[in-house]
Design a protein around this nucleic acid. Sequence first.
DNA 1: TGAATAGTGTCTGTGAGACAATATTAT
DNA 2: ATAATATTGTCTCACAGACACTATTCA
Lengths: 277, 277
Amino acid sequence: MKEKKYKSEEEFLKHYNPDDFERLSATVDILITSVSDTPTQNYRKLNKKSFSVLLVKRNTFPFKDKWCLPGGFIDVKETIDHAVERVLSNETNLHNIYTEQLYTMGEVDRDPRMRVLSIAYMSLIDKNELTDKLPFNAAWFDISINERDQFVDIKLKSEKEEINFTVEKLLVQQTTAKYKYNIVENKDIAFDHASIIALGIERLKNKIEYTDIVFNMMPKLFTLGELQQVYEVILGRTLLDAAFRRIIKNKVMKTNKMRTGGGHRPSVLFKYKEPRL
Amino acid sequence: MKEKKYKSEEEFLKHYNPDDFERLSATVDILITSVSDTPTQNYRKLNKKSFSVLLVKRNTFPFKDKWCLPGGFIDVKETIDHAVERVLSNETNLHNIYTEQLYTMGEVDRDPRMRVLSIAYMSLIDKNELTDKLPFNAAWFDISINERDQFVDIKLKSEKEEINFTVEKLLVQQTTAKYKYNIVENKDIAFDHASIIALGIERLKNKIEYTDIVFNMMPKLFTLGELQQVYEVILGRTLLDAAFRRIIKNKVMKTNKMRTGGGHRPSVLFKYKEPRL
DNA sequence: TGAATAGTGTCTGTGAGACAATATTAT
DNA sequence: ATAATATTGTCTCACAGACACTATTCA
């Protein structure tokens, strides 16, 4: 742009040419997570819960036939939030879903087509509220994680297939224990979405301990046993019953409904109690 | 783009035209923070600490003569991290500075020239390490904050001038106590940078309680009194000495140096002790 | 000597970890 | 009756808030 003197902002804007700088593209990519219930054989036992993520199979280049996060380009005339809502309504029939910004990915070659920033979001939903059938190219994958030294093996399992990838967990900031996740092995996930998945899992593990975020993936009514199962599957460790109940007792409210039918003592159904802020 | 069948990713990429979608621009904008020391009259008293932020006065349109965060456009061929480093090295002579992503701002009209995303970063530095003179158009502003109901009045004071603005603190997410900051009164800050400042202050207030982030703005050696002052000025409340010392005793290490010369008992100089992760 | 900061000791209440004990149901 | 989950009680230990007390320096 020429160095020119303008008298007013209006005048400046009239002459401004956005093409003086080469521009770029941006997408939103959303890690949609939930918990799945798998019935067990033993009639007494509770359903097994797993932490799951919604992926979409690409049917066009680039990364044709690989799995990726639901996402889309941000239109020049729409806000980021709007793009997020648009993508979410393509994949689900839900409104007022929990979303939060996860990270903005900006490696130069993360998309082979051209320069594309990805503004990654994380979203938590209650899968049971989904009434519409999933888009034909989308599927839920149950997550299992194995950490060995600085490597994290992540296994994603849907009804039809299994995906494995490995990321390297690298400390980037000592004072705040901030990590980044480099992909070291990955055949099936497109772009840098494997990093985003690892990042989102870590974020959720942290937030579940000091926020009420988990209730975004719970049904309206739930037993404390179920809630504890969700905590356990996300944290990847078992919790002591008594301690767990103490921790969440201020976050939930007893209802007068019970869940019966298992081969054991019925349990009270609770609902989320919003905190005073 | 035409719906065409390509045989391979290579072939697809050869024919891909990035101009099929209208592209946009992106900047990085960095909230550079530190603590300032103001000497007091009374020879016995400690210097007063304040929490400060580095702003730059714009000398071109748009928002000519208003203050903004140091920032710049992301080049198509550079990573976001590289852009951040580039901006930081323009403003400081420091390397290996603490930075973290704060938020990506994406309102459509946040820049009157064209569509510009802003990837906001926060950075903490030790002001005393700055050896070069500040760029002529940059200045440090001490921050003071007044919260009344959902409004937050923020006062920024440099050697030469004082800026006031007000943001409205709006709860956007009950379960995670997530807020957004809408600008309701602002004459002097360009773009949506007033929101970014409010967001960064909140982030820092939170992180100081559960991370070691504060040590990024401390000198190598410091007294526990000084460290406590920094905590107090950022949190906006006084802390009990004994309790504070208990909390940070695992984060610091005693040295054999002392600070003497105040009209009172000398104090031991401590240094940061990196945690085992 | 006195003002100011530095540093420690102790009491108390809260809350988490650990584990034991009791309650209830469907088969 | 038994297996399984639901729910509560209690002991202990760690730690934070509150506050008092001692230590040390320099004008």
